[in-house]
């Protein structure tokens, strides 16, 4: 039987899905063990048990100086920046995407401009943002917005343009105005795509968030990682990395679940 036709059963599938995680963990545990037997005070690869202890401490014990549990404060402020940035980006992506996709005049005016702007590496203009908007919240949120909005606009305007002409003509013969076509025909059909595009751009959004926090901040997940790097506190860094991964995964999962619940028709054809 050809390899392309061989399929794993449910038990094997679950095992195969776990395998890479187990492999990475095993490699890390062995490497850490080798280093620690050579030098018990090695800080580069802390033992898994040390990481668990550190994590328990970070999640529960308040900071001695400020009396706050820093990890939760970091999480709250980072998620707030992320939500603001991604939310504003999604909204403007939707508005501009609809306008560019539906209105030939706007397409003629902005299509090329957005294509060029989306080529600007956002991190390269981070200094400009700090100069223009100061070191406060605004510049961090702006970096996320500038980083992912061009992608969202391009993607959504493309989706709007892909709505079959037949549907747009049909709506016109039913007496729909441009606004009604945008609201009742185009908007509902690109919303599932918006959720999907936002899921795709969450990766870059985290990247921009952590980059901005690493450079100028006094609170936030990215700030903390780059702060403790000075003390080579790998156990703290790894805890934060795992925590960010978990948050990102949970966000992605939540968006997918939302999309399935809110847009039952999108999967109806399958």
């Amino acid at each position: 039987m050809r390899l392309i036709n061989r399929r794993p059963g449910p038990a094997l599938r679950a095992f195969l899905a776990l395998l890479p995680f187990l492999a990475v963990f095993a490699v890390y545990a062995v490497a850490s063990d080798i280093r620690l037997t050579e030098n018990p005070s090695d800080r580069l690869l802390p033992a898994p048990s040390t990481i668990v202890e550190t994590a328990a401490r970070l999640f529960t014990e308040p900071d001695r100086r400020s009396g706050r549990i820093l990890l939760w404060h970091d999480t709250a402020i980072s998620l707030q920046r992320l939500a603001l940035g991604v939310g504003i980006a999604a909204l403007s992506g939707l508005v501009f995407g609809l306008a560019i996709g539906l209105l030939p005049h706007v397409r003629a005016a902005l299509g090329g401009f957005v294509a060029v702007v989306s080529m600007i590496p956002p991190l390269a203009i981070l200094p400009i943002l700090f100069i223009a908007f100061g070191l406060g919240e605004l510049s961090k949120v702006m970096l996320i917005i500038l980083g992912i909005t061009p992608f969202l606009i391009r993607d959504l305007s493309q989706r709007v343009a892909e709505i079959p002409t037949e549907q747009i003509v049909k709506a016109q013969t039913l007496g729909a105005s441009s606004a009604v076509i945008a609201l009742r025909v185009a908007l509902p059909q690109v919303l599932p795509r918006l959720v999907q595009s936002v899921r795709l751009s969450l990766g870059p959004a985290w990247l921009f968030l952590i980059a901005a926090e690493a450079i100028a901040s006094d609170l936030g997940l990215g700030y903390r990682i780059f702060l403790v790097r000075r003390y080579l506190a790998m156990d703290v860094i790894l805890t934060y990395v795992l925590w960010i991964t978990l948050l990102a995964f949970a966000l992605d999962w939540a968006l997918r679940a939302l999309s399935r619940r809110a847009f039952p028709w999108a999967g109806a054809a399958a």
């Binding site: 079959p164 037949e166 549907q167 003509v169 049909k170 709506a171 013969t173 039913l174 007496g175 729909a176 105005s177 009604v180 609201l183 009742r184 025909v185 509902p188 059909q189 847009f263 028709w265 999108a266 109806a268 054809a269």
Partner: peptide
């Protein structure tokens, strides 16, 4: 009025909503 070979109905509306749309799309908010 028009019916094409394909794509003549709105995929994001139920069958009933599609019929209602025949009247409602000409209204201010659709």
């Amino acid at each position: 009025g028009v019916v094409f070979q394909r794509y003549s109905v709105f995929p994001h509306m139920t069958v009933r909503e599609n019929i209602v749309a025949g009247e409602s799309l000409s209204r201010p908010l659709g």
